[in-house]
C-alpha cells in the first residue's frame, strides 16, 4: 500500500526575511498503473485514483487517449467540470485563506453550498455565496496582503501542441507562475467569476488536445493551474503515460515559492511563518504538506 505523497517546505528566518527556502515533493507513481492497459481501462480507472479535480482528470485523460488513438473525442460533460472548478476555488477562498489570515473559516455556509451543488438551486445558491459571503471575506483577505493592489495573475494558456513537441524533445515549458500573493489571490476571485458566468451561459469547459500516430496530449484548466496528460499508444495499449499537474510544476524546486517571498518583509518570526503559509497556499499544493521554519 502506498501513501498519498507529501510536500515538505523548509525555510530559514534571518535578518527580517525568509531565506534558504527548499521544497521536497514525493509523489506515488500512479500513472505507471496505466502502462500496458487499453485506453478504455485507463478512462475507467482514472476517476478512482484522483480525488481532487477528478472530473478534469477524467476529461483530460479521455481526450488525450482519443487523440492518440486517432478516434473522435466524446463531448465532455461541461457542468460538472465547472462545478468542480468552483468547488476548489471556493474551498480555498472560504476555508483556507481565512484561516491563513487569522479569520474564522466560513465552514457552515461552504458545507451548505457544497451539499447542494449538483442540485436545481446551484445558480441561486452560488450567487448568494459570491455576493454575501465571498465578497466581504475577500476584502478582509486582500487587506491582509501587503501587495494588495497587484492585478490578478494571467490566466494560463492551453498549448497541447507545444507540450507534445516538448515531451518528444524532452524540454518541457516553464509554467506561468503567480508573481505575488495578491496576484494569486485575485486570480482565484477572477476565476470564480468566470466559472459562474460560464455556468450561467452554459459555456463548454475549455479542453484542448494535440497528437496522432499513437501520441496524445490534452489539457484543461483547473483551480490549481493547467492539468496536462500525455499518452503514447503502441499496438492499442499504453506504452507511456504522464500527468503534469500544477503541483509538480510549482514545487519541482523552490523557485516559485522564493519568487513569491522575495520582497516580502518579515520583521518577526511569527510574520515569517504567516507569510510562508500564505505563499504555500497561493501555489495550492494538492498533496498533504508540512512547513518547517527555522532560525537561520
Amino acid at each position: 500500500m502506498i501513501g498519498p505523497g507529501q510536500l515538505t517546505v523548509r525555510a530559514g528566518w534571518l535578518a527580517g526575511a525568509l531565506q534558504e527556502i527548499s521544497v521536497h515533493l514525493e509523489r506515488p507513481p500512479a500513472a505507471r498503473l496505466f502502462i500496458g492497459q487499453t485506453p478504455g481501462v485507463v478512462v475507467k480507472t482514472v476517476p478512482y485514483l484522483y480525488a481532487l479535480c477528478g472530473e478534469a482528470q477524467r476529461a483530460v485523460a479521455a481526450r488525450a487517449l482519443a487523440v492518440a488513438a486517432g478516434e473522435p473525442a466524446r463531448a465532455a460533460d461541461d457542468r460538472p467540470l465547472w462545478i468542480e472548478c468552483l468547488h476548489e476555488h471556493l474551498w480555498r477562498l472560504l476555508l483556507d485563506w481565512p484561516a491563513a489570515i487569522g479569520e474564522a473559516p466560513e465552514r457552515e455556509v461552504f458545507a451548505a453550498w457544497r451539499n447542494q451543488r449538483h442540485g436545481d438551486r446551484l445558480i441561486q445558491e452560488t450567487r448568494y455565496l459570491i455576493d454575501n459571503v465571498l465578497q466581504p471575506m475577500s476584502e478582509k483577505c486582500l487587506a491582509a496582503l501587503v501587495d494588495r493592489d497587484t492585478p490578478a495573475a494571467a490566466v494560463p494558456r492551453l498549448d497541447p501542441a507545444g507540450w507534445l513537441a516538448a515531451w518528444r524533445t524532452g524540454v518541457l515549458p516553464t509554467p506561468v507562475r503567480p508573481l505575488s500573493l495578491a496576484a494569486a489571490y485575485r486570480a482565484r476571485l477572477a476565476e470564480v467569476a468566470t466559472a459562474f458566468a460560464a455556468l450561467l451561459a452554459e459555456h463548454p469547459y475549455p479542453l484542448a488536445a494535440a497528437g496522432g500516430d499513437g501520441w496524445g496530449v490534452a489539457q484543461a484548466p483547473t483551480a490549481r493551474g493547467v492539468l496536462t496528460h500525455g499518452v503514447r499508444l503502441v499496438d492499442g495499449r499504453v506504452a507511456d503515460y504522464r500527468v503534469w499537474a500544477p503541483t509538480d510544476a510549482y514545487f519541482a524546486d523552490a523557485a516559485a515559492l522564493s519568487s513569491l517571498l522575495a520582497d516580502v518583509a518579515c520583521p518577526t518570526r511569527d510574520m515569517a511563518a504567516y507569510r510562508l503559509t500564505q505563499a504555500v497556499l497561493a501555489l495550492d499544493p494538492c498533496v498533504p504538506h508540512v512547513v518547517e521554519l527555522q532560525d537561520a
Binding site: 498519498p4 505523497g5 485514483l49 484522483y50 480525488a51 477528478g54 499537474a245 498533496v287
Partner: peptide, 8 residues
C-alpha cells in the same frame, strides 16, 4: 489530496 486513497 490529489490521489483518492480511501481512509477508514
Amino acid at each position: 489530496m490529489c490521489l483518492a486513497i480511501p481512509a477508514q
